[in-house]
Computed example of a mutant assay.
Amino acid sequence: MTSVLAPLAARYAWWLRLPAEQTAVPEAAEQVRAMPVVLRMEKSEPPSRTPLLEAAATAALAVCLDERSREGGEWHDAVHSWISGHIRKVARRARGAHWRAVQELPGITVDVAGAQARALLPCRVSDLPREVSRLQVSGSDLPQDEPGPPPADVPLLLLNPEVTMTVGKAAAQVGHGTMLLAALLGEAESKRWQEWGYRCAVRVATVAEWAAWRPRDPERGWLEQRVVAVRDAGFTEIAPGTITVLAHWRAAETAAHSR
Rank of each mutant, 00 (worst) to 15 (best):
D111G: 00
D111N: 13
A113Y: 14
G114Q: 15
A115P: 11
Q116M: 14
A117T: 09
A117V: 08
A119P: 15
P122R: 02
C123R: 07
R124N: 02
V125R: 11
D127Q: 11
L128T: 14
L128Y: 02
P129C: 10
P129F: 08
P129R: 13
E131K: 10
V132W: 01
V132A: 10
S133I: 13
S133H: 08
R134V: 01
L135M: 00
L135F: 14
S138R: 08
G139K: 02
S140P: 02
D141V: 10
P143Y: 04
P143K: 07
P143D: 07
Q144P: 01
D145H: 07
D145S: 00
D145F: 06
E146N: 05
E146L: 03
E146F: 11
P147K: 11
G148E: 11
P149D: 07
P150F: 11
P151Q: 00
P151H: 05
P151T: 06
P151S: 12
P151Y: 06
P151D: 00
P151F: 01
P155A: 07
L156E: 09
L156K: 03
L158M: 14
L158T: 10
L159V: 06
L159I: 10
N160Q: 06
N160T: 10
P161M: 12
E162Y: 04
E162C: 06
V163G: 05
T164N: 03
M165C: 10
M165H: 10
M165G: 03
M165V: 00
T166R: 12
T166H: 02
G168A: 05
K169R: 12
A170T: 06
A171E: 05
Q173M: 13
Q173R: 02
V174K: 09
V174A: 03
G175W: 05
H176C: 01
T178L: 08
T178R: 00
L180I: 01
A182C: 04
A182W: 13
A183R: 08
L184M: 14
L184H: 02
L184P: 03
L185M: 05
G186A: 02
G186H: 02
G186T: 04
G186C: 04
E187T: 12
E189W: 12
E189N: 09
K191E: 15
K191W: 14
R192K: 13
R192L: 15
Q194R: 09
Q194M: 07
Q194D: 14
E195C: 12
E195K: 07
W196F: 15
W196V: 15
G197N: 14
Y198D: 14
